[in-house]
C-alpha cells in the first residue's frame, strides 16, 4: 500500500459518492448511462468473486480487510445505483441517448480474457474479463455525452473523479515497479487504455468546467 494507491481508491469512493449525490439531489438520473453502470456492476461482481472463497487459509493482513471492505462497498453501491436508475428515478432516464451496443464490448472482453490470461481457470478468466471490461466500461457514458453534447456540472465532477483515479493508479504501478519489482501487464495495458479514453473529456473539463463554464462539447 502506498500513497498513490490509497489516494486513487479514495478518489474512486469519492466518485461513487458524487454520483449518488447527483441522483439524490437532482432526483434524476438524466445524463447518466445505465449501460456504463451495468458494466461496472458486472466488473465488480466478476472480479470480487474471491469474497466468497474461504479466507481461512489466507494470511490475514490489514490490507486484506481493507480490500474486503472496499469490494463490498463497490459491489453494493453499483447495485444500488442500478436500482435507483431502474426503479426510483426511472422516469428521468432517457434510453434514447443511451444507445451504445454493450454486447460487442462484452463479447470482445470475454474473447480477450479467454485468449490472454495468467491462468486458464474460471476465477482467473473472470478476473481478467473484469479488467478488460473495466477499461472500456465508460464508453457508453462518453458516447451518451457526445450525443447530448452537454452535461450537468456535478456529472462532469463524477466523470473527472472516475477518470482521475485511474490516472493515479498509473503512478501507483510505476511506484510499485520500482519499489517491489511488481509487474502486471494485463492490468497495466488495460489501465493505460482506460485512462486514455478520458483524454478528450479531461481536456474539455479543464477548458470549461474548471473555468466556471458549463460542460458543452465544441
Amino acid at each position: 500500500m502506498n500513497v498513490f494507491r490509497i489516494s486513487a481508491d479514495l478518489l474512486h469512493l469519492l466518485s461513487i459518492f458524487i454520483l449518488l449525490l447527483k441522483m439524490q439531489k437532482t432526483r434524476s438520473v438524466a445524463g447518466i448511462s445505465f449501460k456504463t453502470q451495468l458494466l461496472y456492476t458486472i466488473v465488480f461482481i466478476a472480479r470480487y468473486l474471491d469474497l466468497f472463497e474461504s479466507h481461512a487459509e489466507k494470511s490475514f493482513e490489514l490490507v486484506t480487510l481493507y480490500n474486503i471492505v472496499m469490494k463490498i462497498i463497490f459491489i453494493s453501491s453499483s447495485v444500488y445505483t442500478l436500482y435507483l436508475m431502474k426503479k426510483k428515478f426511472r422516469a428521468t432516464y432517457d434510453p434514447n441517448t443511451d444507445t451504445f451496443r454493450i454486447e460487442y464490448l462484452l463479447a470482445l472482453c470475454l474473447f480477450l480474457a479467454l485468449m490472454f490470461n495468467y491462468r486458464f481457470t474460471v476465477m482467473e478468466v473472470l478476473w481478467t474479463f473484469s479488467i478488460y471490461l473495466e477499461a472500456v466500461a465508460i464508453l457508453p457514458q462518453l458516447f451518451m455525452l457526445s450525443r447530448t453534447g452537454e452535461a450537468e456540472t456535478i456529472t462532469t465532477h463524477y466523470l473527472f473523479a472516475l477518470g482521475f483515479y485511474r490516472a493515479i493508479y498509473l503512478l501507483n504501478w510505476i511506484w510499485r515497479f520500482h519499489m517491489e519489482d511488481y509487474v502486471d501487464w494485463i492490468v497495466w495495458i488495460s489501465g493505460a487504455v482506460q485512462t486514455a479514453l478520458y483524454s478528450d473529456f479531461f481536456y474539455i473539463y479543464y477548458k470549461k468546467v474548471l473555468h466556471g463554464e458549463k460542460f458543452v462539447l465544441p
Binding site: 494507491r5 481508491d9 474512486h12 474471491d50 490490507v63 480490500n67 472496499m70 469490494k71 463497490f74 495468467y118 491462468r119 482467473e124 478476473w127 493508479y169 501507483n172 492490468v187
Partner: peptide, 10 residues
C-alpha cells in the same frame, strides 16, 4: 508463471 496469483489491488 507465479505459483499463486494474488491480486492485491481493487
Amino acid at each position: 508463471f507465479r505459483d499463486s496469483i494474488r491480486h492485491d489491488e481493487l
